[in-house]
Design a protein around this nucleic acid. Sequence first.
DNA 1: CATCTCATGTCAACTATGTTGACTTGAGAT
DNA 2: ATCTCAAGTCAACATAGTTGACATGAGATG
Lengths: 155, 155
Amino acid sequence: MAKTSQAAGLHRASLDKLHDLDAALELMYYGWRGMTLEADAYLAKQGLSRPHHRILYVVARRPDIAIGSLLEVLGISKQALSRPLNLLQERKLVTSKRSPEQHRSKLLRLTEAGRRIEQRASDHERKVLREAFDRVGASGAAAWMAVMETIADNN
Amino acid sequence: MAKTSQAAGLHRASLDKLHDLDAALELMYYGWRGMTLEADAYLAKQGLSRPHHRILYVVARRPDIAIGSLLEVLGISKQALSRPLNLLQERKLVTSKRSPEQHRSKLLRLTEAGRRIEQRASDHERKVLREAFDRVGASGAAAWMAVMETIADNN
DNA sequence: CATCTCATGTCAACTATGTTGACTTGAGAT
DNA sequence: ATCTCAAGTCAACATAGTTGACATGAGATG
């Protein structure tokens, strides 16, 4: 997992706008990329990548989450989870213990090192958001959140 | 390329917020997914997927683009381009002709069928954006764009 | 004409991230 | 003793990308 670096290039291309909302459509694409670029670079330096970060992020916010619940939250199969999760455990970024009462399920937690990496990776992403929000002020930030909520809830 | 459908699940998970901007961070993730969900489902029905759509999208907005320029815009290797592009040509969604003067390069265009599929796929994405923008009004939409531009330009 | 460059194409091997399906293991519940 | 259920594991496959090496065909240059 993880390579040296990515394709580079990838400056926002300037394409003709055929429709009113083409600019917005492209901004969603480049926005996602802009937010994750530095975090991905940091993760790659640690020999980790996006799937590992997703696991760390969720476990950080749901200590003692069971494997099954983690699968639900991530929306992937257990087979897809196993490789990145095993790596995180080998690296001692995540620990698991059996539940005292529900002995069937395994409860996951981050170690101190896991918390540190999760924080640093997420910090890169939050930094980009913070800078953008600072430029538009609180009302602009609120509008951004409102738009994104509507889009996100488009199931 | 393309399967029957995706993992399903994937309701926005409710995780504890450890930081101020965690909600925004998650909205970026779910926003991207919300925008592309229906478009991806439509593409899958056509036996196509995201890489094909990206090609169709760019060629629609840069008729007579050369392969090399397309590679730059997409930011992938020519080997990665070849499979989806060849499929699009076999399906007669994209045509290529050699340039009259610059005979070395090959110029790409969408056929009528290619244009139609590109439009329908992108329409799904624009529809989601339009609904969200309608809810917050022109000033909210402008704020969203301003935030996304700052984030996108974070190189 | 001969050679150089340049855009494109293609073969091969590899990585990463996911999928299904089938089966095992180990512990709790009946 | 058996059933159920969470978790783990093996195999085969699909998709989307990477590098490296090499071929081809045409325009540009000595």
